[in-house]
Structure formats: structure tokens, C-alpha cells
Deep mutational scan, measured.
Amino acid sequence: MGFKLLSKLLVYLTASIMAIASPLAFSVDSSGEYPTVSEIPVGEVRLYQIADGVWSHIATQSFDGAVYPSNGLIVRDGDELLLIDTAWGAKNTAALLAEIEKQIGLPVTRAVSTHFHDDRVGGVDVLRAAGVATYASPSTRRLAEVEGNEIPTHSLEGLSSSGDAVRFGPVELFYPGAAHSTDNLIVYVPSASVLYGGCAIYELSRTSAGNVADADLAEWPTSIERIQQHYPEAQFVIPGHGLPGGLDLLKHTTNVVKAHTNRSVVE
């Protein structure tokens, strides 16, 4: 069995187990497998329904001669939608809004960016022009300005110390501490036991640490421990890039980060 097929099978099995364990909360999309990078042309966006009122959005972007996937989250909030992270750029984010209108038909009224990198804030200006209120932590807003990236308009308070959590509509926002970046936030959907790890969490097929220019490698494993301790009931975990899975993604990420750190020390 090929690795790609095995990865998709694991996603399907995880979703099936969740649907059985929580039949009222989960209505997993039966329309197909989780979209992969090879299936999404740059400039297009796919939506994948995880649970009743919960979707991931998947886009792709060219970077350094390669094409990478990027995940975000959409959560229903009454007759409105909360968006977590842009679709990595203005063109993708405009396509995301169009796809949401086509498939869901509810307005996106608020959006949260989970850290300051372009795959999370690139497209904020498109959201703002569409009347979406954009939010991020003060740290993310400051770092985005320093980096020359787009800056969300509103500040999220109460997320300055490791372990801080605040309720934001249908989700809980959690600051686990520094990891992929010093400002990275985690998003949890309690009604569906869905954990969105953003770039602080890796997919299972990833074996290298990737972009760690703004990471705190020493603190990252401790931050992941905080996530595990705060959300032990999480059933569906979405990484910032690639295929979702279960809580095993947290341990896998820790292993990859520690291996990278150990290699760096040896070198």
C-alpha cells in the first residue's frame, strides 16, 4: 500500500471513529477524501466538511520552486461564519470567499490569524475590503508590521502568557507558548472536538522541520505538551499544512522538532 493511500485511509478511519463516538456532533463529509496538494491548482481553494458547521479550507501556493498546501478553518456561528487564517495570499483568499459563498452561503463576518507569517495573514486586506472584521493577538499584529505583512485590524486580548485561553464565538483560542513562531495560536472547536494546530503542528508525513527561522526550538516541545494537557479530548487535529489526523500529530511534531534540534547540535 502506497504512503499517500495509507495517509488518506488514516484520515478516513479517524473521521469514521469520530462519527461513531459522537453521532450528534459529527456529520463528516462523505463526498470524498481530504484534498491534497496535487489536486488543488494554485489560485483555487477546496472546502472539506469535518463536522456539522465545521470545515477546513485548503489552498496551495508556490514557494521556492515548489507547491505547498495550506489549511485553515471555518466555523459556523449562528447565521454567520468565523474564518481562521487566510488562504495564503490575496488571490487565494478572494477564491476562498467565493467558494464559501458557493458552498455554504453564509457571510464571513470575523477572521482570526493564528500567527504573523504570510500563509496566515496574506489576504487580510481582501477580507477587510469584503467587510470582514480581522483579528490577531497584539504580538501577531506587531510582528506582521515588522515583517511588512498585512496586519489584522483588531487585537485579541488575554493571550499574552503561555497557557492563556479565551473564548471567541464558537471557538476557544489558546496560546501554548512559542513553537513554530513566538505568537502562534491554537484554535479548538469544543462542539466538535476539532483542534486546529496551525503551523505549530505537523502532518504525519512530514519528517523535516522546514521553516524554523522564527521558531523557538527549545520551547516548542513544552508548548505541545500544554496543548495535549489542555485538549486531551480532541479527536480531529488539523495541521497548518497537509493531512489531518488525531492527537498523534502532536507527538510526531515533537519528535521531528527534537530530531532537528539534535542534528543542529551535532553539526
Rank of each mutant, 00 (worst) to 15 (best):
S193L: 09
S70L: 02
M1K: 03
V126S: 14
S181W: 02
P152F: 04
E150S: 06
D85W: 00
P244H: 15
I151W: 07
L143T: 10
G177I: 01
V126A: 06
G123H: 02
V187Q: 00
T261K: 04
A218F: 10
V194Q: 00
D29N: 13
Q228T: 05
T140N: 03
A15H: 15
L127I: 15
L97R: 03
W88P: 00
Y188C: 02
A136Q: 02
F26Q: 12
V146C: 13
H180G: 00
G32E: 07
D183F: 01
E225P: 02
G89C: 02
V45I: 05
L47T: 05
P23W: 05
L82K: 00
G78D: 07
H154S: 13
L81F: 03
G210K: 10
Y175Q: 04
P69F: 10
G163A: 12
T86I: 03
E203P: 09
S7K: 15
G210F: 03
D216Y: 15
R141I: 07
E233M: 10
S161D: 13
F236V: 07
Q235S: 05
P244S: 12
A178P: 12
T207R: 09
T182C: 04
L185K: 01
A15G: 10
S205W: 10
Q49N: 15
L81D: 00
I227L: 11
A200R: 03
D79P: 09
A165L: 11
G246W: 08
L143Y: 12
V257M: 15
A178L: 11
A59F: 02
V194Y: 03
D29R: 10
L173S: 00
A209N: 04
G177M: 00
Q49M: 08
P221R: 12
M18A: 04
V166Y: 11
L10G: 08
V54I: 06
S208H: 12
L10N: 04
E147A: 12
A136C: 11
S223E: 02
S113W: 03
V121F: 00
K102V: 15
Y231V: 11
V121C: 05
F26K: 07
Y188G: 03
P138V: 06
E150F: 05
Y188S: 11
A111P: 03
T114S: 08
D118R: 06
V266H: 08
A259V: 07
A133D: 10
T254Y: 07
N184M: 02
A133P: 08
V265M: 11
S30A: 11
H115A: 00
S62F: 07
G210V: 12
P221Q: 14
S193N: 06
S161N: 13
P138K: 15
G123V: 02
N262A: 08
P138Q: 12
I74K: 01
V75I: 06
I74Q: 01
L83D: 02
R263T: 04
E44I: 06
E101M: 14
V257Q: 10
Y202W: 11
D214T: 08
T153P: 05
S27M: 05
F63T: 10
P69T: 07
V112W: 04
G177H: 02
P244Y: 14
I201S: 03
V189Q: 04
A218T: 13
R263V: 06
I100C: 03
V265A: 11
V266R: 10
S62E: 10
S113P: 03
S16H: 15
N211D: 10
F168D: 01
V108Y: 03
E233Q: 13
F3T: 10
P41K: 10
N262W: 10
A111R: 02
V67T: 07
D214W: 14
D52A: 08
S27H: 07
H57E: 01
L73S: 02
A90R: 13
E233K: 12
G122M: 14
L81W: 01
S62D: 06
L47W: 02
H117W: 00
V266Q: 14
L247H: 14
G240W: 02
H117S: 00
P138H: 04
V237R: 00
A178C: 03
V257P: 01
L247F: 04
L5Q: 06
D77T: 07
N92Q: 14
F3W: 08
G65V: 06
V194A: 12
H260C: 12
G65Q: 04
R128F: 14
L47D: 02
V67G: 06
N92H: 05
A51W: 08
A165Q: 14
E172Y: 07
D52Q: 07
V256A: 14
A95E: 14
G2I: 14
F26A: 05
Q103L: 13
A59G: 06
Q229K: 10
R46A: 05
A25E: 05
Y135N: 06
S30K: 12
K8Y: 15
R142P: 02
K251C: 15
S62P: 05
V265D: 12
L24T: 10
S205E: 12
E147Y: 14
I224Y: 00
A51L: 08
E233H: 12
Y188L: 07
G158Q: 12
N184C: 00
N149V: 11
L81Q: 01
T261C: 11
R142Q: 12
T253W: 00
V187W: 01
T222E: 10
S208I: 13
S7F: 04
Q61Y: 05
L156W: 02
